[in-house]
C-alpha cells in the first residue's frame, strides 16, 4: 500500500518537473549554443575546432555518470531487492548509451583535424568503446530475457562488473601513454581550461543534463504505466 502511494506521488511530481523543464529548456539551449558557437573565443592552437569540446566533454561526462548511477542502483538492488531502483536504471541506460556514442562520434570529429586521424586504439578511446558495449549488453539483457526476475538479476550483475571499467576510463590517460590528452578539469586543483571556455562548457553540460532529465522522466513514466497495465490485467 505504501509503495502504491509513493508511485502515484512520483507520477504527480514527474508531471510538474517535466512542465518546469519544458518551460526553461529552449531559453537555456539558445544561450548555451550562442556561447558555444559565437561568444566564446577560439583556442590559441586548435582554433575553432575547440568548440567540438563543448558537446564532446559533457556527452562523455553524462555517459560515465549514467553508468555510475546504474551500477550504484544495481548494487543496492542486487542486495536489498528494491524494485523501483531497477526501473530507474532501466530508464537511465538508453540515455547513457546515446551520450557515450555521441562522445565517441564527436571525439573522432575532433580527432581528425587535431590529431590527424578519426580513430586510434589508445587506452582512453578503447575503454570508452567498452563502456558502450557494456551499455548494449545491459539493455539487451532485459530486452531479450523475458523472465523479469532473471533479467533484473543478470542486468544488475552486468552493471556491477561493468563499473570496474569506469576508473579505467578515468585514469587511462594517467596510467598509460595515450594519444588522448589528460583531464583538463580536475576535481581537486585548478583546471587548465581558460574561464572564457569554461562558461560555454558548463552551460552546454547544464542543457544536456536538462535534456537527460526530460528523457528520463518520460522513460520512467512509461515504465510505471507498463507496470500498472500489467496489474490491470491481473484483476
Amino acid at each position: 500500500m505504501i509503495k502504491f502511494f509513493s508511485n502515484s506521488n512520483i507520477f504527480f511530481w514527474i508531471e510538474k518537473l517535466t512542465n518546469f523543464i519544458n518551460s526553461i529548456f529552449f531559453i537555456v539551449l539558445l544561450v548555451a549554443i550562442s556561447f558555444a558557437l559565437i561568444l566564446s573565443p577560439p583556442d590559441y592552437l586548435q582554433g575553432d575546432s575547440v568548440r567540438i569540446m563543448y558537446v564532446h566533454v559533457p556527452a562523455a561526462w553524462i555517459g560515465l555518470a549514467s553508468f555510475f548511477c546504474i551500477a550504484l542502483l544495481s548494487l543496492v538492488n542486487f542486495i536489498f531487492k528494491i524494485k523501483n531502483f531497477n526501473l530507474i536504471s532501466k530508464s537511465i541506460a538508453p540515455i547513457g548509451l546515446v551520450f557515450t556514442c555521441l562522445a565517441i562520434i564527436t571525439g573522432s570529429l575532433w580527432g581528425q583535424p587535431t590529431w590527424g586521424t578519426f580513430w586510434v586504439w589508445d587506452a582512453r578511446i578503447t575503454s570508452m568503446l567498452i563502456l558502450a558495449i557494456f551499455y548494449i549488453i545491459f539493455i539487451l539483457s532485459y530486452k531479450l530475457i523475458s523472465d523479469q526476475k532473471k533479467a533484473d538479476k543478470i542486468s544488475s550483475f552486468v552493471a556491477i562488473i561493468g563499473s570496474i571499467n569506469l576508473p579505467i576510463i578515468k585514469y587511462s590517460v594517467d596510467w598509460w601513454n595515450t594519444l588522448h590528452q589528460p583531464a583538463s578539469i580536475k576535481i581537486l586543483g585548478a583546471s587548465s581550461i581558460h574561464s572564457s571556455m569554461l562558461v560555454p562548457l558548463f552551460l552546454m553540460f547544464f542543457v544536456l543534463i536538462l535534456y537527460c532529465a526530460l528523457i528520463f522522466l518520460m522513460k520512467y513514466k512509461t515504465e510505471i504505466i507498463r507496470i500498472k497495465k500489467k496489474n490491470l490485467k491481473r484483476l
Binding site: Y44, Q46, Q181
Partner: peptide, 17 residues
C-alpha cells in the same frame, strides 16, 4: 609513415597565449 599530433590539456584564447 604517419604523424599524429598530440594535444595537451591546456585550452586558452589566443590573446592570453
Amino acid at each position: 609513415d604517419r604523424i599524429l599530433a598530440k594535444h595537451d590539456e591546456n585550452y586558452m584564447p589566443p590573446e592570453l597565449k
